[in-house]
Design a binder for these strands. Structure first.
Lengths: 339, 339
DNA sequence: TTCAATTGTGCAATCGATTGTCTGTTTATT
DNA sequence: AATAAACAGACAATCGATTGCACAATTGAA
């Protein structure tokens, strides 16, 4: 059972004829240990190839210096860049990161919370799954005062800090941009309306319409899960209207792409006959033809900020000030709306 | 220091007036515990909201049921899909996954190995960083008999199992495809030649040239780090040759994209004047115009297979049979080479 | 009825690092 | 020289779950 060749502080202690506590203190730079002893311990540790056992340390300290991350999918660019932001900041402050994917399935998400709790992570960063309407599984953390920060797809039911981008403004900028380009019938393909970010993008769009006195028409608003297939269906439906739209603001780039591909099939010219704006600035949006106008949101920044909040909560143990941080977005004008 | 409200097996034991060992055995379905006691323990655990402390268990068992993953960047699609494959399989077999990014920096990679070792992961899956030529930092694992599997960017120096795709065949298919399309001067932009996968892609390309009796010309072969900037430079150099190529096989899609963008700037028509084939089938390759012909390699499959190998090593402790598994690739013909 | 076999639990050590408290030594102060 | 203060290090308990061994209770066989 015991792994052969595990070198522990006791081996160092024995070799130097001192006690384990001295070795421990020497390695942790405790001032109660003299410079001479400290140096001897260091050298012996090096010589024996000692590697600290984080598990033992974690058990004793009931801290793991590890944070857990729950996200829908690493393979979506926004999330993978969020992870990069999380990891980078966590590393700087000496924390490790365990990543769990929910794959947008609520049972998986519940599994993730269990796993992270069992690993006794010091805090959790999460972006909730599309189909969770119930957030009880997050109570394992809140009940035990384990700091929790939501980002992007946040959950209002739970009172904790949150980091989002300015979805409202993004929606507003996208719609107003289309209006400024002379579009009159601007459709919106939005996401599930139990998620704030999609509500906000919609509200931004609506505000732009109202500001410019354009009518709000139900038939021009479609809500789905924003994947490729449903994007096709939505486009189909919009193009088949007796009075089809001359612009579409899609709540993500995947859907915008779907729309453009479908438009191409139908012989509808983008941007001349149909202007399109997406959301996220996925890497592909720059390279497709026509290139896609979109709203940029930095996953990296969001992840970074969320980690900063979380680690502050962990390290200061200020009784969770529930901040909600809103990061700026930026409209990127490209060909798909340039007419 | 002690987290308030930690429920341990001893709390359950006290509540039921039995010993901790009985509780532990009951929860682990040890046959020495009667059905009746087992049931009582279960119920009390539920009632008290007991959550096992994996750390304590790990320390005692010197197993963590966790595997570590070292990759260059989660934000590259191939790697994020590999992670999905790894996570999926690991989860099925009850293992957790810790992910570390090297960002293609060798010092970071060394840090990752330390971190994972300190966490006492049961095994490691790695794809090495571009600039490591030295692999001593992996010795922490091999020295202690911690199973290690490399994938994609493998390292020959260390004897262990490996999972790759058939890069040689991929290179061959790509080049032969261009030859079949009537191209005569086929250039190759390859990756760092200390990595097998790039050597193999090059060799596949060379074999196709030889098979079809085309001359191999040094000036048509450029090696760099395959990022966007260096792709531009390489394209620049090739286009400026007195006798420029009529086709380019790039060792990744990013470089192929760079080449196509640069060709567009120069007014060189793809595929009519220049046919292009990439490698990887990144998501964008399908959507750009013209769409990019490329060699598909499934990150998901590679990750899945690597995990299967690793977990077999961990669980069976067969003295590491050093398999090298080669997964198939597939040429995807799109517009960029269709003439 | 007695002894052995079977079954169900408890005791205590263990995993490796950390830390409060205690002891013994050296240095400074008057 | 005597006492206090500062210093270095050791001892032992602790974190929570697991497990070899011991022991008691029950059952069955002779």
């Amino acid at each position: 059972m015991k792994k052969e060749g595990e070198v522990t502080i006791h081996d160092i202690a024995k070799a130097l004829k001192v006690s384990g506590s001295t070795v421990s203190r020497a390695l942790n730079n405790n001032p109660r240990i003299s410079e001479k002893t400290r140096k001897a311990v260091r050298e012996m540790a090096e010589q024996l190839g000692y590697q600290p056992n984080a598990i033992a340390s974690n058990l004793r300290n009931s801290r793991t210096n590890t944070i857990g991350v729950i996200i829908p999918k690493v393979s979506r660019y926004f999330f993978s860049s969020a992870i990069t932001g999380i990891e980078e900041h966590a590393r700087e402050r000496g924390f490790n990161v365990i990543i769990c994917q929910s794959n947008d399935i609520k049972e998986r998400e519940a599994d993730c919370t269990q796993t992270l709790f069992a690993s006794r992570v010091d805090g959790v960063i999460s972006s909730v799954s599309l189909d969770s309407e119930n957030y009880d599984h997050y109570k394992v953390f809140t009940n035990k005062n384990i700091p929790l920060v939501f980002f992007d797809r946040i959950c209002d039911e739970i009172e904790t800090s949150k980091v989002v981008v300015d979805d409202f403004k993004g929606g507003f900028l996208a719609a107003e941009h289309l209006i400024n380009k002379g579009c009159k019938r601007i459709a919106h393909i939005g996401g599930p309306q139990h998620l704030n970010l999609y509500i906000n993008r919609l509200q931004g769009y609506l505000k732009a319409l109202r500001k410019h006195k354009l009518p709000v028409e139900q038939e021009l608003m479609i809500f789905n899960n924003l994947n490729r297939e449903e994007g096709f269906e939505a486009a189909e439906k919009l193009f088949s209207l007796p009075n089809p739209p001359d612009a579409i603001f899609a709540a993500n780039d995947t859907t915008a792409l779907s729309v453009m591909l479908h438009a191409k099939e139908r012989g509808i010219k983008v941007p001349e006959e149909l202007a399109v704006v997406g959301f996220s600035n996925e890497p592909f949006s720059e390279y497709i033809t026509p290139s896609l106008s979109t709203v940029e949101q930095s996953g990296f920044e969001v992840g970074h900020k969320a980690t900063e909040l979380l680690l502050d909560m962990i390290q200061n143990k200020i009784e969770d000030k529930q901040e909600t941080i809103v990061l700026p977005v930026k409209l990127i004008e490209r060909q798909s709306s340039n007419r």
